[in-house]
């Protein structure tokens, strides 16, 4: 299973657009699970900082930050998911 961590917080104006794109991209992908990480929580900011994250929205795949800041493209997200699949084989 590929684990996507989606980093966001309640005041980030671009996060809903990022989440909407992410939701569309992973629709129907049975080998992907998404975990929402709110960086306004103590746990969330700790997780973000552990991954050297510096901005939201951001997407980490299997524990590695792949996309930071908005906008990002569906093609890039799909490419990173494919990359994770190849690594897991």
């Amino acid at each position: 299973m590929i684990k996507i961590e989606y980093f966001h917080n309640p005041v980030c104006p671009y996060c809903p657009a990022a989440k909407s794109l992410l939701t569309k991209v992973i629709e129907g992908l049975s080998d992907v699970e998404v975990v929402d990480v709110d960086t306004y929580t103590e746990e969330g900011i700790k997780r973000g900082m552990a991954l050297s994250l510096m901005a939201v929205p951001a997407v980490a795949i299997n524990g590695v930050v792949k996309l930071t800041g908005w906008p990002f493209e569906a093609e890039d997200l799909l490419a990173y998911i494919d990359e994770a699949r190849v690594k897991q084989r």
Binding site: N9, V11, C12, G48, L53, M54, A55, V56, T68
Partner: peptide
């Protein structure tokens, strides 16, 4: 360096700079 130290939203990204 956008997203790697450059930010346009202090309230969004400020907590990362503790």
């Amino acid at each position: 360096f956008k997203g790697r130290g450059v930010s346009y939203c202090a309230i969004c990204d400020g907590p990362f700079f503790k």
